[in-house]
């Protein structure tokens, strides 16, 4: 079931992405609304990371196209931010937490300009938002996995973009922090920003997301959470692992489920 958004921020048209000639995403075609918190669900290897990378032009689609803010990608780069999977970099790099977060401001700075006081303030504010103020001068090699993830989030926040694409930003983040950051993302969407999050936990997904994309090599569903998260579509996405799905349908019924209260 694919529900199209009105005046979309992101439009993906009949996109196919292949590695070595073998497609891992087939004819994906959907639109996303602005100002919403959007979840991307799907099993391992479903092509979620590939989808995010294709949207940002990090992998070249073998067919179809992507339009962001009704423009081509190159024209709107500085309005898009990205939180990669934590494993994508070497954390042994000689940099402090603040150094990494300031990198988020580089896109707007432009060539030859150096980050100054303003950029530092933006970075400090972003670190505060993810609860990492106490670690400003810490070496990034000395952080825990969840703290590294929060540094990446802060870097994206420092960019002050309009569209955020996050690849499993909550992997290894504790529940209390996850809840805080979800609230933060919610607030951002209220300001008109659009946040797309690859997420594995269906329980918290049901709680926080407004819109859901379900993916398994093909696009299974895209639309408002209440309309697309059904037992049938979940079965199509995850291939009918029954005991998981019976739990999920219970959650679907209890729409007001909150993992922190139970």
């Amino acid at each position: 079931m694919i529900i199209q958004a009105e005046s979309p921020v992101l439009e993906i048209h009949d996109m196919t992405v292949s590695y070595d000639q073998s497609p891992v995403l087939w004819n994906v075609d959907f639109t996303l609304p602005s100002g919403q918190l959007i979840g991307v669900l799907g099993p391992n290897g479903a092509g979620k990371s590939t989808l995010i990378k294709a949207i940002m032009g990090l992998v070249e689609p073998s067919g179809g196209y992507v339009k962001v803010f009704d423009r081509s990608l190159a024209e709107v780069r500085s309005r898009i931010s990205y939180v990669p999977q934590r494993e994508s970099v070497d954390w042994n790099f000689p940099a402090s937490v603040l150094d990494v977060v300031i990198m988020g401001t580089y896109g707007k700075l432009g060539l030859f300009k150096r980050p100054g006081k303003r950029e530092k303030e933006v970075a400090l504010a972003s670190l505060d938002q993810v609860g990492m103020s106490a670690f400003v001068n810490r070496q990034i090699s000395e952080l825990s996995g969840g703290q590294q993830q929060r540094v990446f989030l802060a870097r994206a926040l420092a960019q002050d973009a309009d569209l955020y694409l996050m690849d499993e930003p909550f992997a290894g983040v504790d529940m209390a922090t996850e809840a805080t950051i979800f609230e933060l993302l919610k607030r951002m969407t209220k300001e008109g920003k659009t946040v797309v999050v690859v997420h594995h936990d269906i329980y918290s997904a049901m709680t926080y997301f407004d819109w859901m994309i379900m993916l398994n090599l093909h696009l299974v569903a895209s639309g408002p959470k209440n309309q697309v998260v059904t037992e049938e579509l979940l079965r199509k996405t995850y291939g009918g692992k029954l005991n998981l799905l019976s739990k999920v349908s219970e959650i679907v019924r209890k729409q007001d489920f909150n993992p922190l209260e139970s």
Partner: peptide
């Protein structure tokens, strides 16, 4: 000196650099 910030960023995280237009 002139490309210090670009060199550092792309050394640490090349994809992020590409995404933000470096």
């Amino acid at each position: 000196y002139f490309f210090f910030k670009e060199l550092t960023l792309t050394s640490f995280d090349e994809s992020f650099g590409s995404v933000i237009g470096i």
